[in-house]
Design a binder for these strands. Structure first.
Lengths: 369, 369
DNA sequence: TTTAGCACTCAAAACGCACAAGTGCTAACC
DNA sequence: GGTTAGCACTTGTGCGTTTTGAGTGCTAAA
């Protein structure tokens, strides 16, 4: 934070920081006069002009056209985020608001992520996203069955993290309680701990053999299990607050807006970026992708900030913010940080810590596939 | 379809229809000359002008400004949709595409609706929406419990329609298999068939009493049940293809676009409109809301077309299309109709009818809350 | 090294103007 | 009566010109 990083004089840093923050605030190119007057620099505009010309040569600033002020380049933002940005402290009110909004009746990961996303969007006024990647190699640690009616039963799959997923299995023949029990036993014996990739024909036959007289259940049941495990590769991404983009002049251009909306529609691409794990983190596990640092071409002039959400040390999702490159970095970073932490805390600690919820109603399990 | 409805002469109807269809196609106000030349009307432009002036007086057409052609008014579209629109037959290729896209590995209502929505959006090039209303008065018809670990169990709630929802219940004390069984019995005795509104204190006490030594499970379990039933009021709505709005010049206005995006964000409002059941249907259960017929103010210049999706005679959701008032009504209506029918068919018939899926893997159950 | 001054550049706004499309109306026509 | 031709009128659109103003780079002086 305080290195002499890259031989930039203290004054240049000051000017760069001020230009960036002014531009973030106003969205207008900032000129030498502005810096002198509004930012109270104890130099003449000419001196500042000289400094800015040098900052431009270094690649930190650019000029939209000859007779305009300077705006930060992507490297400028990068330098700012890495070395110049100051820690932003959320106010107590903000933290309180945030926590109380999250706590209200939220018990499932899906719901928490969803509220967190909405909260993030409304508190920053940028679109927010919530990601639930499903790691490949998902396995079921235990199977249970529940009879539903003559021709169907509910297959309960308990995952290693204690969450559960369910699917209805329809049987071609009437299912008895014994059949149900047998199915559970068979699946537990043959398929627990087995990832989707290892579902081979011999395995199926094992299950059928194990089921004996109830082998007619094998095929439908296994297919359902496979669905759950294979669906894991897809993951889920939701976006909230796209309309907020329109508050920013940089998106008041139909091409750019279309690019953005299209990107939001194609969730898979975004998901890949967030879930790939290839983005280097700055402090606190926060990831910042500025402009074309983002592999998605459409992100020029936009920044994506996100942070993984952990549960018991294991990544279970992520929340993030998308906005113009001139985004309020300190605040957004602080917000995402706090949200992610609150979510983890909420899930790890369980409802026991939340007096309003009473005892023991916590749940980390997610029931939807 | 063939009445003299409202004393409109056959020629006026013809002109109105042609104006509307031309406007739908081009998006430009249509003038008398255009009708004479392109639409081959056997009258002079002056005659057509006279007719159009009268149609304007009747409220079916309007003029953006004095020296422009005519565009249809909302009543114009309404009249068109009610009396003038011709049945559109999807091509066999379209139907085939549609069915095959829906069938592929789709077994859950959520997934089917989702695919249908995406399909609808891409085939019509308008944004599409999928709705899953949850009727108030939801009840659980049967409870089952599955132990998960020492301090938690999975509560399975089988709904009257055969679907199931699950929640994890955390217990303050260790739960045995007997405790689980007792809980299921207690809930089945006291809470099956009881809607959320009737969850009163005496009822809770009944459950506790019934549970005897296991009464510590009552509170956490009941809360989870309540969550499921009460969440029912909210429902779920998803939108796909918003970016397609940008293909239409009527949305190339930031205010309008912002209105639209904002409306899409506030899903509750939209949900109310679609789920209220107050929209009168035209043939085939299709609902059409033109412009300000829609209670949401933001829908000026936009039309919402949707159709409930039924399962065994019972409405379980809806799919729809939103677009400019000048939308390709015949095609959209045909598409929504076919989609809705295909979904119902798929769900009612079950996977048995789908050779590709093999036997008995169908499920209408939905496992997410 | 800093500053004042000045000429220069360039985007955006303001203006004026011609053009084209389409109308309403009147008068003639069948 | 219904239909048509002709003409004056209205009005949005496109286009080139001008004006304005912010901001720069450079030079010369402090």
């Amino acid at each position: 934070m305080k290195t002499t990083s890259g031989e930039l004089s203290e004054r240049k840093k000051q000017i760069l920081k001020t230009v960036i923050e002014a531009y973030i605030e106003t969205g207008e190119p900032v000129g030498s006069k502005y810096l002198m007057q509004k930012a109270q620099f104890p130099f003449s505009s000419a001196t500042i002009r000289n400094e800015m010309a040098e900052l431009e040569e270094l690649g930190y600033l650019e000029q939209p056209h000859t007779s305009a002020g300077r705006i930060p380049s992507e490297s400028g933002y990068r330098f700012y985020v890495d070395s110049l940005v100051e820690h932003y402290d959320l106010t107590n009110r903000e933290i309180a608001e945030l926590k109380s909004a999250l706590r209200s009746r939220q018990t499932e990961l899906d719901n928490i992520l969803d509220s967190a996303m909405k909260l993030a969007s409304s508190m920053t006024n940028y679109p927010a996203l919530a990601v639930r990647p499903h790691a490949a190699g998902l396995v079921v640690s235990r199977f249970e069955t529940v009879p539903i009616d003559t021709f169907s039963l509910l297959l309960v799959m308990v995952m290693p993290d204690g969450s559960a997923k369910t699917k209805t299995v329809k049987s071609p023949r009437p299912v008895t309680r014994e059949a149900c029990t047998a199915l559970a036993a068979a699946l537990n014996t043959c398929l627990s701990g087995v990832p989707a990739a290892e579902f081979t024909l011999p395995l199926m036959m094992d299950v059928e053999k194990y089921l004996g007289a109830y082998d007619f259940l094998a095929n439908p049941a296994i297919k359902r299990v496979y669905e759950v495990l294979a669906a894991g590769d897809v993951g889920d991404l939701r976006v909230e607050g796209v309309n907020r983009l329109l508050s920013y002049p940089e998106y008041c251009d139909f091409d750019r807006l279309k690019d953005m909306l299209t990107m939001f529609e194609d969730k898979q691409e975004l998901l890949d970026v967030v879930a790939s794990g290839k983005v280097p983190a700055i402090g606190d596990d926060i990831r910042v992708l500025i402009g074309r640092e983002n592999p998605l071409g459409t992100m020029e002039n936009s920044t994506l900030i996100f942070k993984p959400v952990k549960r018991g040390g294991h990544t279970v999702g992520a929340i993030g913010i998308i906005g113009p490159t001139r985004m309020d970095y300190p605040r957004v970073i602080a917000m995402i940080n706090e949200l992610s932490a609150s979510i983890s805390e909420l899930m790890d600690a369980g409802a026991a810590h939340l007096p309003a919820l009473g005892d023991g109603t916590d749940n980390g399990g997610t029931d939807n596939g």
